[in-house]
Design a protein around this nucleic acid. Sequence first.
DNA 1: AATGTTTGTGGTACGGTGCAACAAACGTGA
DNA 2: TCACGTTTGTTGCACCGTACCACAAACATT
Lengths: 413, 413
Amino acid sequence: MRAIAVPGSNSETTRRDNLSALLREVHLAGPRSRSDLVALTGLNRSTVGDLVAELAGQGLVREQRGDSLGAPGRPSPTVHADSDGALVLAVSIAVHWLTVATVGLGCVVVERVRRDWSGEPPSLDRVLGDIHEMSRSLLARPGVHERLVGVGVAAVGPVRSRDGYVHFAPNLGWTAVPMAERIADLLDLGVPVMVRNQSDLGARAEHLRGAGVGVDDLVYLYCDVGVGAGIVSGGRPLVGARGYAGEVGHMTVDPEGSPCGCGSRGCWETVVGERALLRNAGHDPDGGVHEVDAVLRSAETGEPTAVAAVEALARPLGIGMAGLVNLFDPRVVVLGGLFARLAPLLMPGVETELAQRVLSVDREPVRVIPSRLGEDAPLLGAAERAFEPLLADPLRGFARVATVRDGGAMANV
Amino acid sequence: MRAIAVPGSNSETTRRDNLSALLREVHLAGPRSRSDLVALTGLNRSTVGDLVAELAGQGLVREQRGDSLGAPGRPSPTVHADSDGALVLAVSIAVHWLTVATVGLGCVVVERVRRDWSGEPPSLDRVLGDIHEMSRSLLARPGVHERLVGVGVAAVGPVRSRDGYVHFAPNLGWTAVPMAERIADLLDLGVPVMVRNQSDLGARAEHLRGAGVGVDDLVYLYCDVGVGAGIVSGGRPLVGARGYAGEVGHMTVDPEGSPCGCGSRGCWETVVGERALLRNAGHDPDGGVHEVDAVLRSAETGEPTAVAAVEALARPLGIGMAGLVNLFDPRVVVLGGLFARLAPLLMPGVETELAQRVLSVDREPVRVIPSRLGEDAPLLGAAERAFEPLLADPLRGFARVATVRDGGAMANV
DNA sequence: AATGTTTGTGGTACGGTGCAACAAACGTGA
DNA sequence: TCACGTTTGTTGCACCGTACCACAAACATT
């Protein structure tokens, strides 16, 4: 017989779902009066009072005397997420830098540390060592351990969602890294470690707290060195069967094009990625962040070859983006990473291709906008992902787990 | 304040969800013993008994004495969906033909009528007239009206899910058709009329009852005259902000390619669609179904130019498919419509491109398989879509609606 | 200061599922 | 043929969660 299709509901699931809805609301949307929560959920006043009291008892939310804003009637107390009530450790691994932060409920960054790498891409051991060291200083603060509910990691390359395994990261030269397991062993915290692709987490952050708030269908295009996308469709992240969805960088755009690090040729990434920009500008394609900065500064001053190098990305970017728009029908495309920095120079060329190639149905044109969270998007997305089990079940979120590498049931969330 | 994010749960929603889970199970998976339902849902024996009794009271399911299959213990009665308990009218509009059917719960086709068009594509009025006439004979059967819960329509071209509006259908020469409204006015049945794109509905049918049963992540590639895709991700259909997701036919594959009916140029559809096949074979690109049959028969006998014409589709098909696989990370790609008929000849070339261009992470290779439902897929998907409101809320499914054009809350299901 | 409005609070009612005991229906083995 | 173990339906009751109602508290208005 088939596995459980839809597990049945009972009073426990009802309670859990309602607690989850309230905690998620104050976590994502900020402080809310209790009467607002009544209106939002449609639940009864007494029920909301009871639920909020339970969340407050767990230390997850706090209530403050409501201030009357000139309205008649008894003021409703304000409920807000307690940023000390639960914490996560968020890690963002990029090709050129590493960020580690402790983040409190409500997505409040408590403390953050960043380390830049220059020259050659760092080895895996170097990165793991840095994560270890930087985390230790953050976790040493009093009370942090007790309130820690998870670790979220944004990684370069395709990540298998089931167990946070990174099969390869061509732009870092890594292969076969059981990333979640390595980090879990390293930190030994007894909380779940969730590893996801940086683009997927960037999309999550922009959707929940950035340029895509309130937009349930968006495509987030991210360029670190390679190019990836995170897709939110119907308010849910698109993950795919194993977690590899969104690998737009390796769509073939020219069957006879240049070889790509992935083994194929003519991948989109070879014509719109960081290396393509540097090559266009006559710089060393592997020059890294400093060379990119140099090209950007030149382009901003109007230096012709630099401007031309940037603008040469616009057409293939626009053509590929048009395909993505036809595929996903998003309301918004958010440009992240390098694309966000290049946005002013890229937009005219991109818009030209979109106008020509997006299926012109009745819709208002797709809005293409730069990221609002910038380089922090993957980090904040990692934090949000780590909070997810607590938000889904506020009473069990603190349970220490035996298996610390992701969670089967929550693999595709 | 923001709109309701997550409506609260109470005992009513619990009851509704559990009734829905049971009805959906017997509708989709066929007859189930009550003890199976207990195991599947995790609900208590008494609860399942009560729920089944309520569904039986509504005439939606029936119980039969269970036959003991040599196992000890009291036999559990078999619960099966009552195919007379609820009916939908399913309509499938293709470029070359039209099918109308009444379909009972459990997706039992009660009666079906098909009409082929030859020569020029039919006018909108002709099609609507045929739908009217064919439906009337099906609906004239005694008892049909009372048990009818909805109308599902598979249409050519992008369909706006909110209201079933077809902005244009280039392969039929239609523009600006409020299809759901037109059909609702035509039939005047007082039940919701849901119009969706044929590829989206084909994907739904293959997912629920065809080649993709049990596969929660699949891409369904459908070729009627144009090329479209229906995507199921995480068990849910991908719809996009307005319902236009999956328009793969108009991804640019050659920026300088031939012009397409959509106004752009170099669209995928121009190199892998029906017209491309006929052009490759030296036939009239607009020759329609008879010319296609002629090419297929020649190819099957090994006639070289016909074989070459088919095989010439394989490479661009494989390249584009590789991009889709990288984007969606499906477990299965289902070939529908013309692609299913061409599958044996196309597969070698397609597999070559996939092997080269799909990001070779640890996954087992994507399986590319032909449709199991063939030309019926969009029809059955339309039926499934029409059953959805009943399955989601078995007690209210029979309520006659004032607004018969789709449903706001269920627009993106 | 009186009044109307809005909201929190506490007690009770209602609905849904879970549980335990019993009965029914089967196969097995003496 | 009958006693026994096993599995499952059935029934009455307990438990849990939310809804409802009445009342009190806290505000603005007049």
